[in-house]
């Protein structure tokens, strides 16, 4: 249930974003570990790459509390590390994880069986996160599939899909910008669905399919016609309107609930908009962007929502 996935990218933020994408969840529901910060290595492919592990947070309420604590104490003291060592085998997991598995250990001594196995697995996993994430991704042959392999997989999945739909159209794959943009040509409302729900589902299934047969950190987007492009443009206009309103009225503007992808477009757009900043509030199905004017109100909202203990961000 709480499977870890691992992503790599040029920056930690990008890797996190990628992880959220492939898990298909919102920041608030995710738990991250930074396995490797981007740096200039000497050898190997990981040079200059950020490596992040993420999973769906088991219990959002507890994770929230713990996550805050972890952030305040990013490096646990040596003594604590030693303590947690026999519990989880690694300080990387943070204190919560180690506490968890210690508890599980005691559990297992009582009921034995499945729980014991579980705790063993957990320990293994924490010792070698990379090998375990590979094991879970079904295809042990390679860590990262090439752009060609992934785009071939995406193309065959989508072609098969439009065939099954008995729709006569072309699937065009664009692999520039180190990401895969798959475009189903033509205006097919059937593949779009109300509020693009069908398209989102298709994209989700495309990612799942690709991730399982050719695991990689390549970002995959699926579009029908030019829907997403148009949608992006209109969201950007909407974001600027909200920014103007917040600036002129000097009050926070709370937008309607949106998907994480839509919220990102808003955040990105208003990032370049002087005089306001944005944050997100609420939990996922109803998570929404709040546009905050920089100047008037005295209450200073942290941009980093997850480190804000009182905010309702997570």
């Amino acid at each position: 249930m709480t499977e870890w996935i691992e992503t790599t990218s040029k920056t930690v933020d990008e890797a996190k974003e990628l992880a959220l994408d492939s898990l298909g969840i919102d920041n608030a529901d995710a738990e991250f570990e930074i396995v490797e910060e981007p740096r200039q290595g000497l050898f190997g492919r990981t040079r200059g790459q950020a490596r992040v592990r993420a999973r769906i947070a088991p219990q959002s309420t507890r994770v929230k509390e713990e996550r805050g604590r972890r952030r305040r104490k990013p490096r646990s003291s040596n003594a604590e590390e030693k303590q947690s060592e026999h519990g989880s085998g690694s300080s990387r997991q943070g204190q919560r994880e180690s506490k968890d598995s210690t508890r599980r250990d005691t559990d297992s001594s009582r009921d034995g069986g499945g729980k014991a196995r579980e705790s063993k697995r957990q320990r293994q996993r924490t010792k070698s996160p990379r090998s375990s994430s590979r094991k879970r991704s079904e295809s042990p042959k390679k860590e990262d599939a090439s752009m060609e392999e992934v785009s071939a997989c995406v193309e065959s999945f989508l072609s098969g899909l439009v065939d099954a739909f008995d729709i006569d159209t072309n699937v065009v794959i664009d692999t520039s910008n180190d990401e895969i943009n798959a475009q189903i040509e033509g205006k097919h409302g059937l593949l779009l669905g109300p509020k693009a729900r069908t398209l989102d589902a298709i994209q989700e299934l495309t990612r799942v399919t690709a991730q399982r047969s050719v695991p990689s950190s390549i970002r995959i987007k699926v579009d029908v016609g030019e829907y997403r492009q148009l949608r992006r443009a209109s969201l950007q206009g909407f974001a600027r309107d909200a920014g103007t309103k917040a600036l002129e009225d000097g009050v926070e503007v709370v937008l309607e609930p949106m998907s994480s992808a839509d919220r990102k477009i808003i955040h990105d757009e208003l990032n370049e908009f002087d005089g306001v900043h944005t944050r997100s509030a609420g939990t996922d199905p109803r998570r929404r962007v709040v546009v905050v004017p920089d100047a008037p109100r005295s209450e200073v909202e942290s941009d980093e929502e997850s480190s804000d203990p009182v905010g309702d961000a997570d």
Binding site: E3, F165, L190, G193, T198, A201, I202, E204, L205, V208
Partner: peptide, 21 residues
Amino acid sequence: IGRRGRVASAIRTVVGAAGAK
């Protein structure tokens, strides 16, 4: 089924669209 039923619900959504046809 997928995490939190995401894959299953995506499948249902797409199949629903196909059923509309």
